[in-house]
Structures are given as structure tokens and as C-alpha cells.
């Protein structure tokens, strides 16, 4: 029911718009201003890299973009819908239907196979079992060689786990893929492979990608680079 409400309001407005978004942690004297007024616009099909030192507010901004968190003030419009006004479950439905996440440190479920990990978002979407399996297999094939589907995360290398995590993020054909430090734990060769994978999803499937990274080499793959400093956007390039 919530999806209907969301989809009705979908117009030809930009995919993502932030207007004067702030975020404060704590209260009073101990208050920490993570974001001090962010204005940002990301269009469908963009590939954006987010950079900045730790504590600059980029992770907080990613949480807000991922509908995991809501702004303290200002507005976050996703396809024209004010996310800040949605309930917890409405935001969950938004994530389920439009967003894909690749977390720092993969965050795969340890006791389940790679295939089952990839199937997980489809389970919550209520996709029938046969179609679910088919799409999960296709997503796994898209990120790498066959043959891992029955392996558990513990049996896969870091790069392989990252690929499974990406497969899980794209299996639902999301509008936006949000990635946090996805090459942080990988060597440069593997990192490049992963980045090429993302670039191909961006260009072939026109999935919008927002990626946090510390490495300028990786950021170079993006079409646009946004730099955070002390809770504001310091500069934009590209």
C-alpha cells in the first residue's frame, strides 16, 4: 500500500534532491553537527563518488540517502517524495523497491550460501521461488564466474564476497546503488575489477551509483566527485 503512495508521487523530478539537510547527534553542549546544510542533486544514471576525511559527514549523508536515517532539518526528496515524512516501514519499502546497498565489510549472512544471500532481497519483495532463483543466478553470473553459488561466505575470498554482495545489491534492479568503501579491503587489481563491474552496471543498466571512497584512483571511475569537509560539501568536480 505504501508503494502505491510512493509511486503515485513519482514524477519527472530529479532522482535525488537534498535541500539544506542537517543532522545532529546528541543534544546540548555535547551535540555533534554531522551535517550542516547539504544541497545536492543526483540525476538518474549518474555515477557519483563521495570523498572526504573521516568525520566529515559523508557516512551520515549516505545513511540519509539510503533512507536508513532521516534529516534533522531540511528535506530529502527521493523521486519527489519527502523521505523525512515517511514512517519506518515506508522507508523500508522504499529501500526494498528502489535501493541496493553494498556495505563496508560485505555483511553477507554467514550461515547461508552465496545464492541464498543474493536471493534475500527478493524474498522480502515476495518474488516467487522459481523466479527468485533464476534472478539470483543471473545476478551472480553478472558479477563473476560461476561455481560459488553453494559456497558460504566463509569459503569465499574477500573479492569474491564483495562480488556476492554486489550481486545481492543489484538483483532487485534498483534505481540507486549505494556503496560504502567497497574496495577498502581489496588489493588494487581486485579493486579495479570491482570498479569496472560497477561502471558496466552504471552504463549498461543505467543504475545510479553513489559510492563512498577514500581512494582517488577509485573515485576516478565516477562521473562526478563530491568532497565533504566538516559537514558541508567542500567541492564538486566532474
Amino acid at each position: 500500500m505504501n508503494t502505491i503512495v510512493v509511486s503515485k508521487q513519482i514524477s519527472h523530478s530529479p532522482l535525488i534532491e537534498l535541500h539544506g539537510v542537517t543532522k545532529v547527534y546528541g543534544t546540548g553542549g555535547a551535540a555533534m553537527h554531522a551535517l550542516r546544510g547539504i544541497d545536492l542533486r543526483i540525476d538518474q544514471g549518474e555515477f557519483v563518488a563521495v570523498m572526504g576525511p573521516s568525520g566529515s559527514g559523508k557516512s551520515t549523508c549516505m545513511n540519509i540517502l539510503g533512507c536508513l536515517d532521516t534529516p534533522a532539518s531540511g528535506a530529502y526528496l527521493f523521486k519527489g517524495v519527502d523521505v523525512g515524512k515517511l514512517s519506518r516501514d515506508q522507508r523500508a519499502l522504499l529501500r526494498r523497491n528502489y535501493l541496493g546497498f553494498v556495505f563496508q565489510g560485505y555483511n553477507l549472512l554467514n550461515r547461508t550460501s552465496a545464492l541464498e544471500n543474493v536471493e534475500l532481497p527478493l524474498i522480502y519483495r515476495g518474488t516467487p521461488a522459481v523466479e527468485r532463483r533464476e534472478r539470483a543466478l543471473k545476478a551472480l553470473e553478472a558479477v563473476g564466474p560461476k561455481g560459488w553459488k553453494s559456497h558460504t561466505p566463509g569459503e569465499l575470498s574477500g573479492g569474491q564476497q564483495q562480488r556476492v554482495a554486489i550481486a545481492r545489491a543489484i538483483v532487485t534492479d534498483p534505481k540507486v546503488l549505494l556503496a560504502d568503501e567497497l574496495t577498502g579491503n581489496l588489493d588494487s587489481a581486485h579493486s579495479r575489477e570491482i570498479m569496472e563491474l560497477l561502471t558496466s552496471f552504471n552504463s549498461e543498466r543505467s543504475i545510479t551509483i553513489v559510492m563512498v571512497t577514500h581512494e582517488p584512483d577509485m573515485a576516478a571511475y565516477a562521473g562526478r566527485i563530491i568532497r565533504f569537509l566538516d559537514g558541508v560539501i567542500d567541492s564538486e568536480s566532474g
Binding site: 523500508a92 522504499l94 526494498r96 546497498f101 555483511n107 553477507l108 522480502y124
Partner: peptide
Amino acid sequence: REIGVRLAIGALTR
């Protein structure tokens, strides 16, 4: 963490 993942990919509270 598993619960976090499930919630992040869109699991509802219930």
C-alpha cells in the same frame, strides 16, 4: 549485523 542487513535491504519491522 544480520538483522541490520535485513532491515537495510527492506525488511519490515513485523
